[in-house]
Design a protein around this nucleic acid. Structure first.
Length: 299
DNA sequence: CCCACACCGATT
DNA sequence: ATCGGTGTGG
């Protein structure tokens, strides 16, 4: 167990925002200004300090810095994005400290995003939390390691349905079996192939369509050019770039075009731009459905 | 290429 | 009643 202090201004890292905006799902606020979470086998408890965060972990400082990409200056990212797309300036200004995360364990990311189809943040968090509870405790920390593939392969559909996974129970079981056949390192090896190839490989897994494949590419495999187009991105893209498509359905052809348009505009910053578009639209949606929490960034 | 529908549970 | 990704069938 190690403990260290990360000195970083809120403008450079808004940790509660990063861990509760749909990139990762196993973080929670355990008391005022204290957040606990896990990335695979790495557990963290983060307590807000005067100049940043005091972190206790079974991993190390390097792991924490990698997880939040702290070696990248957020100021520079923000400036670059606004330079490429001035119309995003208000989005960026609204979400200070929002960072693209880089979880170390791709398998946790894959199973997390298998839970996200046709689903909302609260329920996804419950479901991924249930999966996480199958893992071993991490000594001294109030979090568990994400269960190994062998444990996931023992799950059966009825058990998952009983736990409220709905029809996703089927695909989760099927993916656990398929990954076992493919070999434990199949997923991690996709980090070494080009983005398009990784995306195509992921899509052969049951329950993995274009959007989930891009989530795994961006968050789990670290392809910065991936742009998962969900309903929020679709709305934002129509508003900003494709007004003629407003109100139309998101077909696979249009999915491809939106992704290409974003990649042409933002290049290697596509994934970062995606975070702003996603979260800004999520806030608009919250403002419409429940105006009383329109200004609460972190629920 | 686009659309309509089923899947399951949450929300209006 | 409507929403939301994936898969299937028209």
């Amino acid at each position: 167990m190690t403990r260290f202090e990360i000195r970083v201004p809120e403008r450079e890292l808004n940790l509660p925002l990063c861990v509760s905006c749909g990139q990762v799902f196993r973080w929670r606020r355990i008391e005022e200004d204290v957040w606990a979470g896990a990335d695979g086998q790495d557990g963290y408890v983060c307590r807000r300090s005067l100049g940043g965060w005091e972190v206790t972990t079974n991993a190390d400082e390097r792991s924490f810095r990698r997880l939040f990409q702290l070696d990248r200056r957020l100021r520079d990212v923000e400036e670059s994005i606004v330079a490429l797309a001035p119309e995003l300036a208000p989005y960026v200004a609204r979400l200070p400290g929002l960072r693209l995360m880089r979880p170390r364990y791709a398998r946790e990311v894959l199973f997390s995003f298998l839970c996200t189809s046709n689903n909302n943040l609260e329920r996804i968090t419950r479901m991924v939390g249930w999966l996480g509870d199958l893992g071993e405790p991490i000594a001294g920390l109030p979090v568990r390691a994400f269960p190994p593939l062998e444990r996931l392969a023992l799950l059966d559909e009825e058990e998952l349905r009983g736990a409220g996974f709905g029809y996703r129970a089927r695909t989760i079981v099927a993916v656990a079996r398929r990954l076992t056949e493919l070999g434990g390192d199949w997923l991690d090896r996709l980090r070494g192939v080009p983005y398009g190839e990784a995306h195509a490989c992921l899509r052969e897994l049951p329950g993995v369509g274009p959007k989930v494949a891009d989530c795994v590419c961006l968050i789990g495999l670290h392809f910065d050019e991936a742009a998962p187009i969900d309903t929020h991105l679709w709305q934002a893209a129509c508003r900003l770039f494709f007004p003629e498509w407003t109100g139309k359905a998101l077909t696979e052809a249009r999915y491809l075009q939106v992704g290409q348009a974003l990649r042409e505009r933002f290049g290697p910053l596509t994934g970062w731009a995606h975070q702003y578009l996603f979260y800004d639209n999520l806030l608009r949606w919250r403002a419409r459905s429940s105006p009383e929490r329109a200004d609460t960034l972190v629920p």
